[in-house]
């Protein structure tokens, strides 16, 4: 019997199969807890974040849009990340929550190839890609992603002009993308537009 993939599990979860959700838990709980712990630095809060995230998956599995890609892992980790940042800002940093761009979600779409690539990236690949970034760009990205700091908060903490921080965050992500594209998306057989940096978009 072939091994079930993440799409099978998320589809079954959407239909109320608790075993399927727990299969996703068994597959990704270490990564999810590791991410939450990195952000929160507290095992109790990290477990709270992971538990909340999986319950969100249970309640929102039907909203996973397969037509936009197969990266269930990425979707799950985004939920864990968002929940962890919410908890960190509320319970640790005592800062107001960020405002999600929820309404924009449905307007943003990327080629399936990118979701597939991102779904199969390894930890080593990401670390080597990030290692290519200049130190200041890497730090801006880490402060934003793992500490949930806004660009204004990063600018204040780093005593650096706001415009510089905005640039580091944007340029750092763009460079990461370029590195990963060069490494994982070959011109043969995959979307050539991706290599030139032109993602397709769907306007909602």
């Amino acid at each position: 019997m072939p091994e079930q993939n993440d799409i099978d599990f998320i589809q079954a979860t959407a239909q109320g199969d608790a075993d399927a959700l727990m299969s996703l838990y068994d597959r990704y709980n270490r990564l999810a807890f590791g991410l939450a712990y990195r952000i929160l630095g507290n095992p109790s809060l990290a477990e709270e974040a992971v538990q909340d995230a999986y319950l969100q998956v249970w309640n929102r599995a039907a909203s996973f849009d397969i037509s936009r890609g197969s990266n269930v892992r990425g979707w799950l980790m985004t939920i864990v990340h968002n929940r962890s940042i919410d908890i960190r800002r509320r319970d640790i940093d005592h800062k107001p929550a960020h405002v999600p761009l929820e309404d924009a979600e449905h307007r943003l779409s990327v080629p399936d190839v990118w979701n597939d690539v991102s779904a199969n990236l390894t930890q080593e690949a990401m670390r080597s890609a990030v290692a290519t970034l200049p130190q200041d760009q890497r730090r801006a990205i880490e402060l934003a992603f793992f500490e949930g700091l806004s660009h204004g908060e990063i600018a204040e903490q780093e005593q650096t002009p706001l415009g510089t921080i905005k640039g580091r965050m944007r340029l750092g992500l763009r460079k990461l993308r370029t590195v990963l594209v060069d490494q994982y998306v070959s011109p043969d057989g995959l979307d050539h537009d991706v290599d030139r940096g032109h993602f397709r978009t769907e306007v909602g």
Binding site: G34, R38, E47, L121, M126, R174
Partner: peptide, 18 residues
Amino acid sequence: QLRVIAGVLPLLTDEREP
């Protein structure tokens, strides 16, 4: 594009056992 990249940053963390 940027969101796809941000979405794979969790891979930078070490896995931990809850």
